[in-house]
Design a protein around this nucleic acid. Sequence first.
DNA 1: ATGTATATTGTCAATATTGAAAATCTATTT
DNA 2: AAATAGATTTTCAATATTGACAATATACAT
Lengths: 192, 192
Amino acid sequence: MARPSRKAERTEEVLDAYERCVARYGVEGTTLERIAEQAGLTRTLIRHYVGNKDALLDALVERFARRSKHDSAVLFESLPEKDRIRTLVDWLFDPGLSNTRSIRVAGALITAAKDYPRLARRMRDWTFEFVGLLEQELATAYPHKPKDDILAVAAGIAGIYFNVDSLESLGRMSGLRRASKEAALTLAESLG
Amino acid sequence: MARPSRKAERTEEVLDAYERCVARYGVEGTTLERIAEQAGLTRTLIRHYVGNKDALLDALVERFARRSKHDSAVLFESLPEKDRIRTLVDWLFDPGLSNTRSIRVAGALITAAKDYPRLARRMRDWTFEFVGLLEQELATAYPHKPKDDILAVAAGIAGIYFNVDSLESLGRMSGLRRASKEAALTLAESLG
DNA sequence: ATGTATATTGTCAATATTGAAAATCTATTT
DNA sequence: AAATAGATTTTCAATATTGACAATATACAT
């Protein structure tokens, strides 16, 4: 019975802005002023909608974990019956398809993890969950291969993927990106 | 004809401390206070020996570039005649041998590169120089392989290497490290 | 139109960070 | 011992950042 709340949308906007800042300046380098500038809001509004710095980080990490889980679930479920690995690698390495910012945010969160033990656990889980999904996919495609080989290839593809998105900010990385994709495919095919 | 200068050593100590901070808090998250605390000096001494924040970053980047070049030159020159690739992979992925902090510093500098165009160029050069050395080594070991294949493998190994050191701060990464090393070897052997 | 819950803006205090210079201390040379 | 170059400490000013609360404006229900 009063003015309608914009808390939900505003919170998303604030977290979007926060994410952009974190991807660029890191967790420790992000100030409320910068977030406010990015979001086109005032610092006091940031505080009003989400809270202080700690609350902001909690909210960001929460959303990041939820989204990651959802996104990779959707991705792996949407793979076709044929050429699943190939399609997956396309999605991971083709510019435009891959979500570079998520990986950059993950990198920043991992860097900050030393000062936030809960965050360290979360990012470890995040890493191993992604590698685990890759393993699962590879194990289905190559059922006769030993687990160790599958894990090695999954870890390799994940590493190449994380790395190439981290380097993206340097610009002129299309050549390296293509080569990285080739490497990921070579790794996958080494199982066949 | 006066008190002897400690500028040289002190500068190294300050840059060491700065490096530790950058690896942990990122470029934008590092304050002079933190550096001073890490170095066991006062903030004003930091300023006395190296200068203000910009001068510090310049000095750090300068030293990082110089050291990287030197270290990788030494590394590649020290490889034995036989099993060069194998030895190289051991060096890159065995804990204790590899220099994890350098990679973390590089990651932080890459993240900050958007705000420092010169830095972006430097880190691009750094990346491609390392990949280039790998290519050269692989080309010598597998002289009949096309350049594209060599580049793909070099990019893959470099990516896996950078990534595994970035994840190190999360702890309990020995399993993933072993798997990553396996992947790097698999990639190299794919050329044979 | 009126009440009310929320949005929005404004203000203040406390602390952190940086920059710069002056003052003092110390080791070496002569 | 005196002079001197450099190390170290001290001090001050300016700005940035954060936290918290007060005041005002606005949209909706009744």
